[in-house]
Design a protein around this nucleic acid. Structure first.
Lengths: 212, 212
DNA sequence: GGCTGAATCTACAGTCGTGTCATATTGTTG
DNA sequence: CAACAATATGACACGACTGTAGATTCAGCC
C-alpha cells in the first residue's frame, strides 16, 4: 500500500506522475501518523516510509503544511460524510432518546470501521499542530450546528421540559466522542454492547415515553 | 515573578541556590507553556523566560523530562486535591442527580479559579508529550475509580433501574470535562449558569424523584 | 537502439534545539 | 580586602530536520 517493490538492486525509485505521488505520500503520511503521531510526521519520515528521498516530497507538496491540509481535506470529507450519514440514518428525530441512542451506536460502528479517520477527530492523536486542530475544531463545530438544529426540532415537537438544545448537543457530541475513544482504546473493557446498553438504561430512566 | 531585576548593565544573573532556581524555572516553564504550548516548552525557551542561560537549567534539572515531572508533581497534586474536594463537598451521594449537579458546578468553579492547573488536564493544552499524557491519564483514571465507587453506592441505595456505574462515571467525567473546556474557551457563550441550568433540566427529566 | 525530458538522487547549506566543557564572575567568609 | 567556593556564562560538538541545486538515471518515443 505504501509502495515500491523491493527490487534488490534498485537505485532509483519507480517513477510516478505528480498526482499519483501525492496520493502515495498521503498514504505514507497516514502510516507514519498512526505509528509515531504528529510529532514524528516529518518530511523525512514520510519520504522514508514511501521509500523515496525528500526532494521527491517537495516536488509533490510545497512543504509539510501543504501535506497537512491535503490530508485534512481527505479526512475531513470522510469524517463529515460519515457523521452526516450517522445523523440522517438514526430515525425520527422526534424520538429524541431513541435517536441519540441510534446515532451513538452508528458512530461507534463508523469509528471501529474507519479508525484512521476518527482518531484525529477524537483527539486520540494527541500532538496535532495548530492547523490540524483548528480545522478539526471547525468540523466539530459544523456537526454541532446540525445536531443543535435537529435536537431543537425534536425537543419542540416532543413537548415537555424546556431543554437547552445547544448544550444538549454539546453533551451528546462529547458523549459520542467519549464512546469513540473508549472503543478505540479499551475495546475489551468497553465493547459496543456495554456502552449502548448503559446509555439505553440511562435514557430510559431519563426521558419517560411521551404521552401522545 | 519570573525573576531577575533588570540592572541595565548586569552581566551575570543574580545567583540563587539550586532549590530556589528550581522553583523559578517551574514558574518560567508555566509561563512558556501558557504562551506557546508544549511545542514551545524547550530548555532554551524556559531559560530565556527566566533570563538565564541554558547551563543554569541543566544545573537544576537533568533534562526537560525531569522538569516535566516536577511540573506534573506540582500540578497533579493540586488537581487531585481540588478534584477530591469537589467529590466530597457535593452532598449526599444517594441523591445521584443532585450530587452530579453539585459536582459539575464545583468543578467549574475550580476550573475558573485555577485555569493553569486544569488546562492540561482538560486537554486544552494540546500537544503534550508522552510523559505528560500518561500521567494525566493516570490521574483521570484515579478520579474515575473514586467516582465509580461513589456512584455505585448511590445507585444501589437509590434502587430503580440498574445503571452501569462505570460507564455512568465515564460520562459524568466527560461531561464535567466538556463543561470545563466550554467555560475556559467560550466563557461568554457558556457561562456557568447556563451549563448548570441545562444540566439541571436534563437531570430533572431524567431521574424522577425516587419514591421512598 | 539511442534521445530527451521528466523524475529521482546525492550533497550541501541553513536552522534550531540539546547537552557539556573550560572560563569568568559573584558574594561571602576569614 | 583577599581568597575561595558556588554559580553563571560563552562557545563548542552534536543531531535532527528543512529546503535547494546540480548531477544522474529512467522510461517512453522516434
Amino acid at each position: 500500500m505504501v509502495g515500491a517493490k523491493k527490487s534488490p538492486k534498485r537505485r532509483y525509485a519507480t517513477r510516478m506522475p505528480v498526482a499519483a505521488r501525492r496520493e502515495q505520500l498521503l498514504d505514507a503520511a497516514l502510516a507514519v501518523l498512526d505509528r509515531d503521531g504528529y510529532r514524528g510526521l516529518t518530511v523525512e519520515a514520510i519520504a522514508a516510509e514511501a521509500d523515496v528521498t525528500r526532494p521527491v516530497f517537495y516536488a509533490a507538496y510545497e512543504n509539510i503544511d501543504a501535506l497537512h491540509n491535503a490530508l485534512l481535506d481527505r479526512t475531513r470529507n470522510a469524517a463529515l460524510d460519515q457523521a452526516m450519514h450517522v445523523l440522517t440514518v438514526s430515525g425520527d428525530p422526534r424520538d429524541v432518546d431513541a435517536w441519540i441512542l441510534n446515532a451513538c451506536g452508528a458512530l461507534i460502528d463508523q469509528v471501529v470501521e474507519h479508525p484512521q479517520v476518527w482518531k484525529p477527530v477524537l483527539g486520540v492523536t494527541h500532538d496535532a499542530p495548530r492547523v490540524v486542530r483548528e480545522r478539526i475544531a471547525a468540523t466539530i463545530e459544523l456537526i454541532h450546528g446540525y445536531l443543535t438544529t435537529g435536537l431543537a426540532t425534536g425537543i419542540e415537537l416532543r413537548g415537555g421540559p424546556d431543554v437547552d438544545p445547544d448544550v444538549l448537543a454539546r453533551l451528546t457530541l462529547s458523549t459520542a466522542q467519549e464512546f469513540g475513544r473508549l472503543v478505540l482504546e479499551q475495546p475489551e473493557r468497553y465493547p459496543k454492547e456495554r456502552l449502548i446498553t448503559a446509555l439505553q438504561v440511562m435514557l430510559a430512566s431519563a426521558l419517560p415515553h411521551r404521552t401522545e
